[in-house]
Design a binder for these strands. Structure first.
Lengths: 351, 351
DNA sequence: TGCACTTACGTTACCGGTAAACCTAACTTG
DNA sequence: CAAGTTAGGTTTACCGGTAACGTAAGTGCA
């Protein structure tokens, strides 16, 4: 048929002398008059060739601008041995930005590349991403959080790919876990507040989608206060993103209900800074009239005129540790399954 | 030799009956009694097979938990047709976090995966990353910024990979450019300030490494003021990271040198917020005594008690547009080489 | 009845690099 | 001087999926 012929003609339109793609080992081999295998050995720094051959090969490779196809070598090895998949709940979070930075620094130094995905706090989206990444046969995978869909866990377990679950700690990881305990953060902050003489504390949270981690902090905070005989006076969980603005108006709500508070523990630093702004707008003195404490260690929180009391999460360090644990696992070195990183309570000027 | 024998024994330690890796097309083919090719056709939704065969293949694929190897298909096609490389100067920047978010949403919806790198504002590091990504033969590459090393430009040009340079606009891109003009941002802010009656403006910058973009804003700002007959009164570029703290103490320096300013244009919103904090600490009224304007559209800037006047950069939208332009290019659809996105001057309450 | 056409497959070759096996000539060494 | 060793290679097979092409059985129609 004529249509078929036309199509054939179109595909035949490649110029005979023209280079079709990137130069490969065989191009170098042909031009230097040795075999592909010798070229491969020279370029990977092996043995079994003369100095002269090596020079010819290297100069020809340079001249052609040869870049090896990782696709081919990964394929040959049946796994993309320098690829690590990383999935975080949000790309816009300052905290996760730092975690990614730590991961990137550590992984790229160790010769790995990151393929990044974002779950938007959604398990189905995470599972979708895991399916994609598994199809790339990566050397390892890093997931944020410890709760995943059944499909996610199954795919990762059966594939045999090393996995690190990071951020909040789990004692029964798919493979490895690197993180810290949100519950303990809450406990530590409660004890610190008590030590500072606070007796009427409230908690102001906000839950965006499935962020259950704030909940653990609240539980730890409440339990420690309870134990000391000064239970939590008030709790409010806003149906909103945990932003500056939520902290501002949330504190207004909280104080309207219960004016006699001497401390508010916020979901995070952004909300706490919002709370500070609210206090300022109402002439409430911090820390004299009310104490404000946050969580997370936002950079801005440490350089405010009045430094915020908060729990600093070692984000960059966490990324680094997660990367190191994963790489150790990939290399088959012995690794602890659960690695706890230390958060640090920073005493600012708001309590 | 005995050592060789030992090694052989170690490598022979794989159990005969055990699965060595992930199941492939040939496993499904063997188990259903058809050829690899038929399985491939069924799984990719082609034609040329019976309904009954399709069902057998599909159920067997499900049973085995088959995940196709993108490594193999990408390799066969001689390019990783669903892989896009993205390199940003910093992973910890709020602005770039949003750009990445926009990119990720658009790219994943279109069926692409992102491989991310970070140049740390360093051209050698960027070049290093480009070498890595080119070795993956990606469908496209997105770089932040418009100035790159010669090696970077050469590798990308000769590889024929579609490239988008995003963030600041260039009229002579390697391939495509999506961004906005920092110079125009400066001009626009100057005109706005003049319209608001400001006559004695200063600029406070900070240069971290090779961030030359702030420089363009300063140039546009200064030129527009000059043209109107009210030239820039004072300029200070701090040798520091452009942070909240730099804004705070930088303004102090500026006012010590030149107390009679009625406007300060800051490198970015973080610095501007620092400047606001300084004014507050000194009892300077904003905007009555002095106007404070920033750049970038930090989220926190819009929810401060006193909304900051600033230029909002459509970060997420920029990512989306960059992704769409790149994908259009990859698909061979006609595309404009230079796509300008609009920044927006937001009139807050600080001028 | 015979020939074209369709359906439902199967076969082969190939992508680029690498492991493993093999080869050959020169050089040792007992 | 034969046997062994080494340097410096080459050849072959393979990774898993896909394009291109081949083919046998069935189907429709003049």
């Amino acid at each position: 048929m004529s249509s078929k012929k036309d199509i054939d003609n179109n595909f035949a339109a490649i110029e005979p002398g023209e280079r079709r793609g990137a130069p490969g080992l065989s191009d170098i081999a042909r031009l230097t008059g040795v075999s592909k295998m010798t070229v491969s050995r020279v370029l990977r720094g092996g043995t079994g060739f003369s100095e002269e051959t090596a020079q010819r090969v290297l100069s020809e490779a340079r001249r052609l601008g040869y870049v090896p196809s990782r696709l081919a070598s990964a394929f040959a090895a049946d796994r993309a041995s320098t690829l690590v998949g990383v999935c975080v709940p949000r790309l816009t979070s300052g905290l996760f930005g730092n975690v990614l930075d730590g991961l990137d620094r550590a992984l790229s130094r160790l010769g790995f590349q990151m393929m990044i995905g974002c779950s938007n706090h959604s398990q189905p989206e995470e599972e979708e991403w895991v399916r994609h990444i598994v199809s790339w046969r990566p050397a390892g995978v890093i997931l944020a959080g410890r709760s995943h869909s059944i499909g996610t866990v199954q795919m990762l377990s059966t594939s045999g790919i090393p996995v690190v679950e990071m951020w909040d700690l789990t004692t029964s990881p798919i493979d490895l876990s690197v993180g810290f305990s949100h519950y303990d953060c809450g406990v530590e902050m409660a004890r610190f507040a008590l030590q500072k003489g606070r007796r009427r504390a409230a908690y102001l949270g906000a839950h965006s989608r499935s962020d259950v981690m704030g909940q653990s902090r609240l539980e730890g905070f409440a339990a420690a206060l309870e134990e000391a005989g000064h239970p939590l006076v008030e709790t409010e969980i806003l149906e909103d993103a945990p932003s500056f603005y939520a902290g501002f108006y949330g504190l207004e709500i909280l104080l309207a209900r219960q004016p006699a508070l001497d401390l508010v523990y916020f979901h995070n630093d952004e909300m706490a800074i919002g709370g500070l702004a609210f206090c300022q707008s109402r002439g409430l003195r911090v820390p004299e009239d009310i104490g404000i404490v946050g969580w997370g260690g936002m950079e801005a929180a440490s350089i405010l005129p009045k430094r915020l009391t908060t729990t600093v999460v070692p984000t960059t360090g966490l990324g680094k540790q997660a990367a190191q644990a994963l790489v150790a696992r990939i290399r088959g070195e012995p690794t602890r399954r659960v690695i706890a990183v230390r958060t640090k309570l920073i005493e600012g000027e708001t309590i």
